[in-house]
């Protein structure tokens, strides 16, 4: 080192670096609070998660319900837990789009020039986005209840279903973050995300029982982890087997987080 400098100003020296994990949590929470403030100031960005569940329920229950289940009420019970999973998954695609356009604006340059972990802005954004899932679920269950949906298993297990879907969506968000970091344009992020989300959400027993499907599609549905998430949500909200689907959902969540969060942070680090 050939160059030296006068000691840092007292104010900076006084902020002794606290232990790393603790700082990461504190910085991430501060950035999550930033996301929430932004959402509060521009509530219109919650329009999609507010309207989409309502539209889906109307389309599927009233358009198809009679034909598929014979009764719209029976179909509403069958469909609503699955729509909750689908809505949350669709909602998780917004974060990649938002981060992608945020990074272009320069605020992230500021974050990068601060002595905080590279992952903090991403973790903060993902945490702040939880509000989207909560809004989507509240709207969906509120609307469904108005139409006659009932938790067959009691409200507590119904709430547990919501929490499980929340955990899964939170972990799934990291795939969207990764796409947001790898793709140049926000519009492309949206397109790619939906290309992935459609087969994942519709390629399940969401709308009809698996055994009514052709063999090749049955194979995909059984392979698709989202089927397990929907089964777990149904089991918790309506009754039925839950141990297997819940275990599978949690394992998949953990897997998604473990694989895609580090990849997303790495992609963010490399993006200039």
């Amino acid at each position: 080192m050939t160059a030296t400098l006068t000691p840092p100003a007292p104010a900076v020296a006084a902020t002794a670096p606290a232990r790393r994990p603790f700082r990461l949590i504190r910085h991430s929470l501060a950035l999550a609070a930033r996301s929430l403030t932004k959402t509060r100031r521009t509530p219109e960005q919650l329009l999609d998660v507010t309207l989409q569940p309502v539209i889906f329920v109307v389309i599927f229950v009233y358009l198809l319900g009679g034909a598929v289940a014979g009764s719209q009420h029976a179909y509403l019970q069958f469909l609503l837990p699955a729509i909750m999973v689908q809505t949350a998954m669709f909602a998780s695609t917004a974060i990649g789009v938002n981060l992608n356009s945020d990074i272009k604006k320069g605020v992230f340059d500021r974050f990068r020039s601060l002595p905080i972990a590279r992952s903090a802005p991403l973790i903060g954004a993902v945490l702040g986005d939880v509000i989207r899932f909560v809004v989507a679920m509240v709207v969906l269950i509120g609307f469904g209840t108005a139409l006659g949906f009932r938790f067959g298993n009691g409200p507590l297990l119904g709430l547990a279903a919501c929490l499980l879907v929340l955990v899964f969506s939170f972990c799934l968000s990291w795939t969207s973050v990764l796409i947001g970091m790898l793709v140049r344009e926000p519009g492309a992020v949206q397109g790619i995300s939906f290309l992935i989300m459609f087969p994942l959400t519709f390629g399940t027993n969401m709308m009809v029982p698996t055994d009514t499907l052709p063999g090749w599609l049955q194979a995909w549905v059984k392979l698709n982890p989202v089927t397990d998430v929907m089964e777990a949500a149904r089991g918790l909200m309506l009754g039925g087997p839950i141990a297997g689907p819940i275990t599978s959902t949690l394992l998949w969540s953990l897997g998604l987080l473990a694989v895609f969060a580090p990849l997303a942070v790495r992609a963010y680090r490399r993006r200039t």
Partner: peptide, 15 residues
């Protein structure tokens, strides 16, 4: 030890 002010003000518009 550094501060950075870019060509395009990097402030958060919503805050």
């Amino acid at each position: 030890r550094i501060g950075l002010t870019g060509q395009y003000a990097s402030v958060d518009d919503d805050l």
